[in-house]
């Protein structure tokens, strides 16, 4: 047993307090995201953070964040990643989630320690699909057959 402070849900009422830090980014890659629950319904009150080197978030470090909209959608404009690297490290918060969930989003063909640590059958959940030359589509599924892989960092 450690003495770590336990997590509690972000709840539904964070938007006004956290919006000072909302940022989409200005990179050349557009990530069109969506977050859904175990029934496939959009989660309309999540907060999605993306962490990436080389993005200038409003707080001065590599953080961008957006609340999901009524359809569970969110958009980020990210810098083009170096070969094999993720588009972004991601942290997901929502009402109904006691804990935040770390994940990451890659383009196809990436070779990366986070992908290699992921069981082969589930790697697809971390791959955004191309939608034109500089646009990618990715769905975060909190449950179900294609539940997104979430990481526990050691």
């Amino acid at each position: 047993m450690s003495n770590v402070t336990s997590s509690q849900t972000i709840g539904p009422f964070f938007h006004e307090a956290l919006k000072w830090g909302n940022a989409v980014g200005n990179g050349e890659i557009e990530l069109q995201g969506r977050i859904v629950d175990g029934a496939g319904n959009p989660i309309d009150d999540a907060m999605i953070e993306v962490w990436a080197n080389d993005v200038a978030g409003v707080a001065g470090f590599g953080l961008l964040r957006q609340p999901s909209d009524r359809e569970g959608r969110f958009v980020f404009r990210l810098p083009k990643p170096n070969a094999g690297q993720p588009l972004a490290h991601v942290c997901v918060f929502a009402r109904g989630c006691f804990n935040h969930h770390f994940t990451a989003v890659f383009t196809s063909g990436s070779d990366h320690p986070l992908l290699n640590a992921t069981p082969a059958a589930r790697r697809d959940t971390l791959i955004a699909s191309a939608n034109g030359a500089s646009s990618f589509v990715w769905t975060i599924r909190m449950q179900g057959e294609s539940e997104t892989v979430f990481f526990e960092y050691q």
């Binding site: 175990g38 029934a39 962490w51 009402r95 992921t118 909190m142 997104t148 990481f151 526990e152």
Partner: peptide
């Protein structure tokens, strides 16, 4: 609300520099 929003699979345990140094 956890019923449809809480992940069911175990977290994938990994050690990665980004988490510890960013």
């Amino acid at each position: 609300s956890t019923t449809l929003r809480g992940p069911r699979a175990e977290r994938v345990i990994v050690r990665h520099d980004f988490a510890a140094t960013s």
